[in-house]
């Protein structure tokens, strides 16, 4: 029960932060990516503001080994840059640039975005459902980089 409460609180604070920071405004997000046009640096301030408390949290977490509610602190993945990481991020970035929405704000502004937001969410969720199968289908035989869940 406590886990649910703190999950919901985190989600609520995350959503409020996305709203306050202006990151639900798709034109503002595209403005950050528009380096050769009317560049809008706001996203850098959002990132900086978010990384600050999070960096402190990591310092505390890695000393504690487990979280307050008992779950082990997630392990560091092997710091290997693989094809999925880069290809996936490039595809994600392309979609992000096209309409200015990434997953967090798409949910935080679900009731603001109307039918357009729903179309985006349905397409995004459909792709998420299909990803494990797609990843397997695209796997060259014997190549483990594509099959690993990471």
């Amino acid at each position: 029960m406590k886990r649910m409460v703190f999950s919901a609180l985190s989600g609520a604070l995350f959503g409020a932060g996305l709203l306050v920071s202006g990151m639900v405004d798709t034109v503002k997000v595209q403005g950050w990516l528009d380096v050769f046009g009317a560049w809008d640096p706001t996203l850098a301030f959002v990132m900086g503001g978010a990384i600050l408390p999070m960096a402190i949290a990591w310092q505390v977490a890695e000393r504690r080994k487990t979280a307050v509610l008992g779950t082990p602190i997630p392990d560091r993945l092997p710091q290997k840059l693989d094809r999925n990481l880069i290809l996936g991020s490039v595809l994600f970035g392309a979609g992000w640039g096209l309409v200015g929405l990434c997953p967090g704000p798409a949910f935080a502004a679900a009731f603001l975005n109307g039918a357009s937001g729903l179309v985006f969410l349905v397409a995004m969720l459909a792709a998420m459902v299909a990803t494990p199968a797609l990843r397997r289908a695209l796997t060259p035989k014997g190549d483990t980089a594509w099959t690993s869940a990471r």
């Binding site: 703190f6 609520a12 604070l13 900086g48 990384i51 600050l52 082990p72 997630p74």
Partner: peptide, 28 residues
């Protein structure tokens, strides 16, 4: 920029809460 920074602190605070209480990474 100021609102961006304040909202950013809230986003990071949410991630810190999720990590320190639940031991989870806040990735949407």
């Amino acid at each position: 920029w100021i609102w961006g920074f304040v909202g950013g602190l809230m986003i990071g605070g949410a991630g810190a809460l999720f990590l320190l209480m639940n031991g989870r990474i806040m990735g949407a």
